[in-house]
Nucleic acid binder design. Structure first.
Lengths: 335, 335
DNA sequence: GGCTCTACTGTGACCGTGCACAGCCGTACA
DNA sequence: TGTACGGCTGTGCACGGTCACAGTAGAGCC
């Protein structure tokens, strides 16, 4: 429309259909208590005048924004490097596009951003928040809880269990599966590179590993990274120094596994000949590595859709639930 | 607030400050024509009652949403794999958080999504669109132009030049710089792996390469990929078959360069000994490769902020401009 | 015929802002 | 003293919807 005509309103539709505003509104919201003829006339009028509902007017009276936020609270280098965020974001966007609900992206890196976002969200500008936050006791989570904002987290929200809903992969049993897999391959000195221990992926995957090894667990085979590629490289180097006899390593993320692989190759160890390497996530990098990485697949698509579904439940007044989804072993060439 | 109190409105602020709604509104929108005492009283009252403006009510009367959209039109595998999108997205989000403007993420993968997004955007639910679209003649761009939606594209919008604003890295001269760099290194049989030729990064970088080689340009040294890692691997394999004597390759993206590197290593060629490899983007993968990749750095942070700035200009009625930003050579170990 | 009940329709109030307009007051100037 | 004017303030209306409520019409029953 290059003409400066105003956008058609519900009144224009009503006039075109020969009914009242109320009837049009009823058709728009489910169409109950509307006669078939009126229903039909309204629908024809809508396409005829090219009507699109004004979301602001609607939100003003319903005090529902019909939008949700995707809130990132990790330092920015992780967003850059870690493909999991992108995958989740894409999954959520896709899930929401079907419901005609826009997704607002917010990044709470600094304390100032955190305050601003809390204000904005608490003011009711979004109906709920999908939270990507892994570190224990993240203050923005407390802020959101204080303001009664519906929240669903990705991964167990350490320090806020029971107070916010979450969707998580089963980190512990995934680690059990991978550790068993390495044992089955005949490995006896299995090391691990964990994520930060104040994150669920860090602590739960370590627990699964420890629980599987039982008596054989040995502190000297444990190193900790921060989910970056570089930290994986450093941790692997450290492990090789400390325990040159290790013959396998379970790395708590694919990206760190990529770093570990580089360290192993730099040290002249063959994979999987000398050392078997198992990852976690099955993110895009896993299959592209050389050798291709055996890893635990997280069901990201399902995590996305469950997060959206659960958030809608919470928005509609349900108590926040916790959903744990199974992971699966993807065998490739590194074990 | 666990109490069910309603959110404070502009009337509550007016009452608390002992002035009228109009005065509060004036303070909120610039504060002109307000006495210092009134101004001060209103500001105190705002924090006292914890007032946050209702964006929906505001949008309803101003018919401005105070939000913009980040619109992705590429097939989803690119979003997964290509880190450039994430970097841009992060940059834009950061730029906007300073302006207290939310960013809506939309993905137009299918034709249905495209129609839905066009409807939504044309209905005025966002003030403007930051467009990530590279392929020539993308239909959604035509849709947006038809509906007079303010648009700023990332990269020259082939087929719509002059009709939408854009911010782009100087692809052509970046390619010239890299090709010259390879010549300076004493290479004489320099191949190239281009992006799709209906994208600016594909065609302009090829032009810069061709222009620099002049007489020495040879069709048999050109192969085309689609910006994915795998396509880089395939193109490199093809080039090696066709021209086993090549001693350098300029790859139009880092991700394809990663694939090319894998193909070279698989073929037993040393880098940079036998073959020098130059990339484009300086995305996260460049420094992590072995050997670390020499590449042309795109100024992503600046591209983000210029896109936001330019979009605001267009929203405010300025004619859409085109901004071209310089790239810079980052020398590492692959050349 | 009067009553109730169901299925549907129209009307007016209201959501929380911005904005045009009118009004007020004090000062400067004729 | 009257008048014009600039700085500041309050009020009514509009934005485009939803929702509660009242109202209508027909069917079924006594």
């Amino acid at each position: 429309m290059s003409t400066a005509n105003k956008r058609p309103t519900i009144r224009d539709v009503a006039a075109a259909a020969g009914v009242s505003r109320g009837t049009v509104s009823r058709v728009l919201n489910g169409g109950k208590w509307v006669s078939p003829e009126a229903h039909h006339a309204v629908e024809r009028a809508i396409v005829e005048v090219g009507y699109v509902a004004n979301q602001h007017a609607r939100s003003l009276v319903t005090s529902r924004s019909n939008s949700i936020a995707f809130l990132l609270t990790e330092p920015q280098h992780l967003l850059f490097e870690d493909p999991n965020f992108s995958v989740l974001l894409r999954g959520v966007a896709e899930e929401l596009s079907g419901r005609e609900m826009p997704l607002l992206l917010m990044v709470a890196g600094t304390a100032a951003e955190r305050r601003q976002i809390t204000r904005y969200v608490a003011a009711g500008h979004v109906d709920g928040v999908l939270l990507i936050s892994s570190h224990r006791g993240n203050p923005i989570v407390a802020d959101l809880i204080d303001h009664d904002v519906p929240v669903v987290a990705c991964g167990v929200p350490l320090g806020f269990e029971g107070r916010v809903g979450y969707v998580a992969a089963d980190d512990r049993s995934g680690a059990v599966t991978m550790t068993r897999h390495l044992l089955d391959r005949g490995r006896t000195r299995i090391a691990t590179i964990t994520g930060p221990l104040d994150t669920p992926g860090g602590t739960l995957r370590l627990e699964g590993y420890r629980q599987t090894l039982g008596e054989r667990f040995d502190e000297s085979l444990v190193a900790t990274g921060d989910y970056t590629r570089e930290s994986g490289r450093l941790a692997m180097t450290e492990l090789l120094e400390r325990r040159p006899d290790l013959d396998a390593v379970f790395v708590a993320s694919d990206l760190m596994a990529a770093g570990a692989l580089a360290a192993l190759q730099a040290a002249g160890r063959s994979v999987p000949g000398d050392v078997a390497v198992g990852g976690f996530d099955d993110s895009g990098v896993a299959a592209a590595m050389h050798p291709a990485l055996t890893t635990m697949r997280q069901p990201f698509a399902r995590i996305s859709s469950e997060m959206v579904r659960l958030l809608h439940e919470v928005i509609n007044g349900e108590e926040p639930a916790g959903i744990t989804l199974p992971t699966s072993l993807v065998e490739r060439d590194s074990t």
